[in-house]
Computed example of a mutant assay.
Amino acid sequence: MSLATRPAQARPAADAVHRTTPGDARRHELGAFLRSRRERIAPEQVGLPMTGRRRTPGLRREEVAQLAAVGVTWYTWLEQGREIQVSTQVLDAVARALLLDPSERAHLFTLAGADDPAPVKECPSVTPGVRLLLEQLAPYPAVVLNSRYDVLASNAQYTSIVGDLGELAPEDRNLIWMAFTPSQFREVLVDYRTERLGMVARFRSAMADHSSEPAWKALLARLLKASPDFAETWQRHDVMRPGNGIKRFRVPGVGLLRCEYTNFWLSPRQGSRMITYTPLDDETRALMDELPTRG
Rank of each mutant, 00 (worst) to 15 (best):
V162E: 02
S183D: 12
K225L: 13
A25M: 14
R53C: 01
Q136P: 00
N174A: 05
H237R: 14
D289L: 14
R105I: 10
A231E: 10
R236L: 14
E260Y: 07
Y192V: 13
G245P: 11
Y277T: 10
P292R: 05
E63N: 05
L175R: 12
R40Y: 08
M1F: 05
E290T: 15
D209I: 01
P7I: 11
A25C: 08
T159G: 14
V254G: 12
R258Q: 15
E122Q: 14
P117L: 08
S267P: 00
R285V: 01
Y261N: 09
V46C: 06
L168H: 00
E104C: 11
E283L: 12
K217R: 15
E29M: 12
A97C: 03
A25P: 00
F230D: 03
V190I: 10
R186A: 06
T51F: 06
G71L: 08
L78I: 09
G271N: 08
P279N: 08
R269D: 13
R202T: 15
P214T: 07
D24W: 00
E260A: 12
G129R: 02
T293N: 12
I84S: 04
V90T: 13
R40D: 10
L111A: 04
R148H: 09
C123L: 13
A106F: 00
P57D: 13
A138P: 01
Q85C: 02
L223V: 03
L111M: 05
E63K: 06
F180A: 05
L266F: 11
F203N: 06
H18E: 07
L91I: 03
W234N: 08
E62D: 14
Q184C: 01
Y75I: 08
P252W: 11
P22S: 10
D172F: 01
E187S: 15
A112K: 11
